[in-house]
Simulated assay, not measured.
Amino acid sequence: MYAVIFEVKIKEEGKDQYLAIAAKLKEQLIQMDGFISIERFQSLVEEGKLLSLSYWESIESIEIWKQNLDHLQAQSEGRAKLFEDYRIRIADVVKDYTMETSDFS
């Protein structure tokens, strides 16, 4: 399993548009083979900073999503009009457990 960590600093005037684009893309995203889940968080420290955390079954699934035409258009629009800055990290999840599945007693 892989995690995609997308941190983005949104221009003040672009937040509503960004969230609308993200909601539209999510409709396609949840239909993708290899997609597991996504959540979005807002920074408590840095105003305007959001984090999207998605989980995927494979690197190949992430690459296919990255080349989705609507996603490519959203990336271009984000860089041109909505983002002050962004950072993307892709991480290999080496362990995944819950309270019920943990080894701790």
Rank of each mutant, 00 (worst) to 15 (best):
K49W: 13
M99Q: 12
I38H: 02
Q67G: 07
R87Q: 15
I62C: 02
G78F: 08
K49A: 11
S43N: 07
L69W: 09
G14E: 04
K81E: 07
Q67T: 13
K24L: 05
F83H: 04
I36G: 03
V8D: 01
S58V: 01
M32N: 06
G78R: 03
L44N: 10
I62W: 01
Y97V: 11
F83Y: 08
K49P: 05
S105G: 12
I62D: 00
E39G: 11
R87N: 14
M1I: 09
F35E: 00
I38S: 06
L44M: 12
D33A: 12
A80Q: 10
Q28T: 05
A20Q: 12
V4P: 01
R89H: 11
E84W: 01
Y18A: 05
L82I: 05
I38Y: 01
E12R: 09
K95D: 15
I5S: 13
Y55L: 11
Q73A: 15
G48E: 08
A23Q: 07
F104H: 09
L25N: 00
I36L: 09
E63P: 02
L25S: 01
A3G: 10
S105A: 12
S58L: 00
A80K: 14
E63R: 10
Q42P: 06
E100W: 08
Y97M: 13
D96Q: 09
Q31R: 06
S58D: 04
S54W: 01
D16G: 11
D70M: 05
E7D: 12
E84D: 13
E60S: 08
L50R: 04
I90M: 06
V8K: 06
I64S: 03
D103Q: 11
E12P: 13
I10M: 11
I62E: 01
T98H: 07
K95Y: 12
H71S: 03
M1A: 13
Q73P: 03
K81R: 10
S105H: 10
E84R: 07
K81W: 06
T101G: 05
Q31G: 03
Q17N: 10
T101V: 05
L19A: 08
L44D: 10
L51F: 08
S102D: 09
Y18D: 07
I21A: 01
I10F: 06
Y55V: 04
K81V: 01
A3F: 07
A91G: 14
